[in-house]
C-alpha cells in the first residue's frame, strides 16, 4: 500500500474512533441530560463520521486501488493527493473546534476558512481521481 494511502486510511481510522467516541457521549448525554450545551456537537459528529472517516477512507482506498493512470505516474500527481489530505484535515479540524464555539457564542469566520478548505479538498480529489476511472487499456496492435 503506498505511503499516501496509508496516511489517508490511518487518519480515517482515527476519525472513526473520535466520531464514535463523540457519538457515544452525545447519546449518553441525551439519555441522562448531563450537559445540554453538548447538543451543539451533533453536526461535528456527523462530519467527523462522514468526512473524516468515510470520505477519507474512500480517498485512501481509491488512490491505492483504482486503475493506474500511466506507467510513469500510476497514481497521477501525488502532490495533489497531499493537497487533498492537508486541506481536508485542516478544514475538518477547524470545523470541529469552531462549529460548537459558534453555537456557544464565539466568532464564526474560521468556519468560512474551514468551508473553503473542505470544498478545495473535494474538488481536487475529483480532479485527481477522474482520469483513473477508466477501463482496461486495449493492447497496441503491432
Amino acid at each position: 500500500m503506498p505511503v499516501q494511502a496509508r496516511f489517508f486510511i490511518r487518519t480515517a481510522l482515527v476519525y472513526g474512533l473520535l466520531a464514535f467516541l463523540l457519538g457515544g457521549l452525545l447519546l449518553i448525554n441525551q439519555g441522562l441530560t448531563l450537559y445540554p450545551r453538548l447538543g451543539a456537537l451533533l453536526p461535528v459528529f456527523y462530519h467527523l463520521l462522514m468526512v473524516g472517516w468515510a470520505f477519507q477512507l474512500i480517498c485512501g482506498v481509491a488512490l491505492w486501488m483504482f486503475p493506474p493512470l500511466s506507467r510513469e505516474q500510476p497514481r497521477g500527481n501525488e502532490r495533489l493527493g497531499w493537497v487533498v489530505y492537508g486541506t481536508l484535515n485542516v478544514g475538518l479540524l477547524l470545523r470541529a473546534i469552531w462549529e460548537p464555539w459558534l453555537a456557544w457564542g464565539g466568532a464564526g469566520w474560521p468556519l468560512v476558512v474551514s468551508a473553503l478548505l473542505q470544498i478545495v479538498a473535494m474538488w481536487v480529489f475529483v480532479w485527481l481521481i477522474w482520469p483513473r476511472v477508466k477501463g482496461r487499456a486495449k493492447p497496441k496492435v503491432q
Binding site: G108, P110, I119, W123
Partner: peptide
Amino acid sequence: SQWMIRSSLLWLLLGSTVGGLLLMNKAV
C-alpha cells in the same frame, strides 16, 4: 462502474459546494 463512479464524483462536487456554502452562511 465508470458511469456510476463518475456520476458519484459529479454529485460530490455539487454536494461539497452546497455544504461549504451552508457552513459559510451559518458562520457569517
